[in-house]
Amino acid sequence: MKVTDPADIQRCYQALVARSPEHVGAFYAAVKTTGIFCLPTCRARKPKAENVDFFSDIKEPLALGFRPCKVCRPTENAPDVPPQVARAVALVREQPKRRIQDAELRELGISPELVRRWFQKHHGFSFQSYQRMLRINLATTELNEGRSTTDVALDSGYESLSGFAYTYKKMTGNVPSQGARQLVLHRFASPLGPMFVCASENGICLLEFTDRRMLETEFRDLQRLFKARILAGENAHTREAEVQIAEYFEGKRQQFSVTLDAPGSDFQRSVWTALRAMKFGEVTHYADLAARLGAPNSVRAVAGANGANRIAIIIPCHRIIGKDGSLTGYGGGLARKEWLLAHEGRHGGRPATA
């Protein structure tokens, strides 16, 4: 969102001039005369106040066509999870069945208010809701493994079966039972900004940057297609995806082996399979991809399937460019697309002529 209040604009400009590290992540400075946007700490020469706009998130300047600064590299240095939030999340992961109260966080030097604000901003729910989701996720797994509802309820910290059943149904839409489905959603950092990975018990069904414009629509579609609620949490598939994506960004991985569970039509899946079969760093265009599939007259359908892809990087739709060599659109933003293609070129990719 663009900063419009005159007092806030003045504060942002003063922080930009002072190269204030405390404001990294609080705003991005977009210079109208150069078409470049920066972090508050950028070492580049500062613009005049009348030549800069300020935005509260990275999505807006990218969407408006501003290019990331090559000095401070805002897309690569997007703010990570604050240390206090990371510590709070680590506590929950270590003991997912135990309720961590605000008083305990304060004793550990963690501000409950900071943690609460961060969760509301980045997830739209509270830290306490996050804990409940993890407990319900774990409860579903244990029910599907054959444990009784009573044992699972008591072991999850509920004093009564009715209280557990009420919370379970409120969060999942179903009564506690064996065979229930769920989708888990985990947020993690990447050099191009934070990402969401979502998985069923069978594999990854979504991998997107958290500022993806169509993200809410994709979440709704997945819940409809899987007939399951999305809850915060992790499983073996989300953890493996996070590891492999980190290896990709480090230049150590060119192929992905994590299991996918991507719902789509037979034609969509054939397009996604063709994308995954492309060589690392190779680029192509819709007409060529349609020809590879033996459907040269289905260019528009190929484009639609490419746009319907919910699994970024692993299904490499960023490798599709215009027939004239232009970058064309990308759900994660053109700046990220350019970065990904350059990254693959630096690490052994041999781009084909589109």
Rank of each mutant, 00 (worst) to 15 (best):
S265Q: 13
S265N: 10
S265L: 09
D266E: 14
D266G: 12
R269E: 06
R269M: 07
V271H: 01
W272E: 00
W272M: 01
T273L: 09
T273W: 07
A274T: 02
A274D: 00
A274E: 05
A274C: 04
L275D: 00
L275H: 00
L275N: 00
L275R: 00
A277P: 10
M278D: 02
M278P: 02
K279T: 15
F280Y: 12
E282L: 05
E282G: 08
E282Y: 05
E282P: 03
E282T: 15
V283C: 10
H285I: 09
Y286E: 07
Y286I: 15
A287I: 08
D288S: 13
A290Y: 02
R292S: 12
R292L: 08
L293H: 03
L293A: 04
L293Y: 03
G294A: 05
N297S: 12
N297M: 08
N297R: 13
N297F: 10
S298G: 03
V299S: 05
R300N: 12
R300F: 14
A301Y: 00
A301T: 02
V302I: 07
A303P: 08
G304N: 10
G304A: 11
N306H: 12
G307Q: 12
G307D: 15
G307Y: 15
A308N: 08
A308R: 08
A308S: 10
N309M: 07
